[in-house]
Simulated assay, not measured.
Amino acid sequence: MAQPDEPHPPVVPSCPLPSKTCDVVPTERPRSCCGMALAGLRTAKYHLPEWHRRNAGVCFEAYTTGEQAERGRGEAKHLMKHAAASAQRAQGYSKATLGQRLQDLQFWRVELQKEIMELDAETNLLVAQKLRLERALDATEVPYSVVIDNLECRERRQPPDLVIDEVEKQLMKEADLIRDIRDLLKRTIIQAKSTPRARPEPTKTQPHFPRGKNPFESQKIGINPIYPIPCSSSASTPKTWAQFSHDNISRAEQEKLASVQLRSLINNIIHDASEDLRMQRAAVSEAFDSHCRECFFLGFSLQILKDIGDEEANIENLKKAIRDKEAFLKVAQSRLYDRSCRPNVELCRDEPQFRSAFKQIIPTHLSNTLTHLSNIPTLITLC
């Protein structure tokens, strides 16, 4: 703020002093006895009128000089009083402006300290989110190694079982998903690490006064008030200084907003990644369960086929047993026929006849059993 214009001291106008004429009695100078040889020259002594005229001139000059000195002393006293009053007013104005300046400094300092504290808290939250990202990245190593191990185990199968089924498709999909999630987490960690930690510069707003000195007394801090202090071309004005502090606060707000957005992005990434992994794990588990059920039914079918094979072998054994009993059957039938031709009392149902009849019944029983066993594979196939 420019200082008010100081009133100029009054100027006393100069006036000419009254002239004083000295009357000198004219006298006749003695004629020179030297004639024309001394024409134009004067003697070494002055006449009394000349001396009076000279003294009158000196007195007039002294009187004039005294009056000028008197006027100078009056003007000097007036200027000293005016300078003292102006200095007092300037000192009061400087104190007032310096006090206002200190209030502005304190205000901006408090604002910057507040922004620094909020930015530090936000930075700590961002660091915590970065740690979550790193832990999430470490947590994906075990599932990824398990998936890769399962795929490698399936690659080592023999050609009949080396098939691309639903389980392998889901495992490959899970491996690709985990790989993409790991790449995304790594990029997000790099972005979180590269985020600049914007901090305002509070030193620009702090007053630089020597310790123990009064900022309102310029003569006590080594400043000579007689000589002007040179001002650098790079010095700032109050407007640019306030704009600099405002820019610091605006930059801190922008960085804080960017940090909040980055933390929200990290939360969304971790949540979405966990949900995708959970859904894919459920899909893989469902594929494994379905494949296990298929294997169980396949094993049950293999057991049924084994039972069918056993029954067929049993049928063949029964057929062989029947064929082996045909000779005994023929002998028993021949004996029964011969005994049936006996006359009267000789036709007796004794023990040999019962034994022969029993031998005839055994092949019939075996034939019925063979017929029953032959129907079992057909029933199993229909089931």
Rank of each mutant, 00 (worst) to 15 (best):
M1D: 07
E6V: 15
T21I: 06
E28A: 12
K45P: 00
P49T: 09
F60Y: 09
Q68S: 14
A69M: 05
L79I: 04
A83I: 00
R89V: 04
Q91C: 09
A96W: 05
R101Y: 02
D104I: 04
L105I: 04
V110T: 15
E118Q: 13
E118S: 10
E118K: 11
E118Y: 03
Q129K: 13
T140W: 01
E141S: 09
L151M: 07
L151Y: 03
R154C: 03
E174S: 07
L185K: 03
I190W: 01
Q191F: 02
K193D: 09
T195Y: 00
R197Y: 00
R199Q: 14
Q206I: 14
F209I: 13
R211Q: 08
G212Q: 07
S218I: 15
S234G: 02
I249R: 12
Q254A: 11
K256T: 10
S259W: 01
V260I: 14
Q261A: 08
A273I: 02
S274P: 00
A282E: 15
I308M: 10
I308L: 06
A313D: 14
K319H: 05
I322C: 03
R323Q: 14
A332N: 08
N344W: 03
V345L: 12
E351N: 12
S367Y: 01
L379H: 08
C383W: 03
